[in-house]
Nucleic acid binder design. Sequence first.
RNA 1: GGAGAGAUGGGUGAGUGGCUGAAACCACCGGUUUGCUAAACCGGCGUACGGGUAAUACUGUACCGGGGGUUCGAAUCCCCCUCUCUCCGCCA
Length: 424
Amino acid sequence: MLTLKFIQENTDLIIKRLKVKNFDATEIINKVIEQNNRRKETQAKVDLLKAEMNTISKEIGKLFQEKKIEEANAAKEKTTSLKEEIKSLDAAFASIDDEVNKLLVQLPNIPHELVVPGRDETDNVEIRRGGEIPQLPETKKPHWEIIKDLDIIDFELGTKLTGAGFPVYKGKGAKLQRALISFFLDEGEKAGYNEVLPPIMVNEDSGFGTGQLPDKEGMMYHAQADNLYMVPTAEVPVTNIYRDVIVDEEQLPIKNIAYTPCFRREAGSWGAHVRGLNRLHQFDKVEIVQIANPKTSYQQLDEMVAHVENLIKKLDLPYRIVRLCGGDISFTSAMTYDFEVYSAAQERWLEVSSVSNFESFQANRLKCRYKAKDMKKPELVHTLNGSALALPRIVAAIIENNQTETGIKIPRVLIPYTGFDIIE
RNA sequence: GGAGAGAUGGGUGAGUGGCUGAAACCACCGGUUUGCUAAACCGGCGUACGGGUAAUACUGUACCGGGGGUUCGAAUCCCCCUCUCUCCGCCA
């Protein structure tokens, strides 16, 4: 969320910029400022009363020590009404503070200057393309047919075990998953990322820290008996490592990489366009997360984009990179690049990665700050993350684009990991 | 799951219901001394939200795992919760 200070100092700018996200912030901001003024007034009042109370209490202590019992008791009586006043003002303060926070979490992050206005994904800005779209024969098949023919990914079996959207990977299909995960992690390590293997269930505080709670509660599986959530992405546990942490400036940027299964309920968003691997309830993903100095966070974003691009290049997949427009970018992001690979049998682009700079929006929720020696006060860090990469659609593209009469050719870089070069 | 012990600032760790936002030590920062380094000595060293200021200074309040209570006054007493450790049980 945006900080109060920033809102107070940049009201017009925020309203103007949020229009890019098709969000009219005027009313919320006015209310925030109004409520915050009330909050300040109330605090000033209650602080004064508390100061008075503290003074009296100290005096009473002194009087008792000097054995002036009667004077002490007389002073005690003065406190009764003070106490009540404090109690009611405290309650008022708490409720105003609560209101301010409720308003604050409704404001989206302001988009970066480069983010263009737009309605939806059709207004996204293509940055560049790479790779070559393969010419497949007329007999080409979509991946959901191929995986069935080869018996490497089994949806029906997953449905029996769990439900729709929980496929079972079998044989070379399973091994291909493992190969991709290892490949992505190794490439990340070479690029300076530190590998972590976090829990895949998180508590409420973590869900709030990265912004899934309270609004998007429905996206996560919830284990109610223990009040834990299945992670929708490794971003949640890995970013929350830095919740309530003040880091030294020299430590920045902190670069972590994590593989986790990801769980998404995706209620109500199923249809023909999400067949096969295109959308799942459980899938595997390698995620990169950076905690960055605000001064250099956009350089870090570029670095992450380059890293992801490099992965796709190495897998020899045709891709394009788009910068999301205001209408397509997420609530929490200031700038997002989506990576899409071309799926030659479905003849469509599939999103395989989303790389974002959240600036201080998440950091403010997380209370993650940094401090340099010459800084009086700690300041919020910038957080960034990106998929590097999400497996299912990469797998779909490999299967479709690399289909031959004899089988699916494995990209060269993966062969050391799979131990085979074709799935037949 | 059962029994017990505990949770204090970046770390170790003291703390009798008032003089404790919190000793001491370590780490860290600034300085003095000194051929250099080290040592020694002196000083500084939390966070949030207010007031104040051009900005400092200064100043109010809150915070000793979290939440409630008792009290004029709570790190300290009481209740609930969470977590950690030890022992027992169970277990990949």
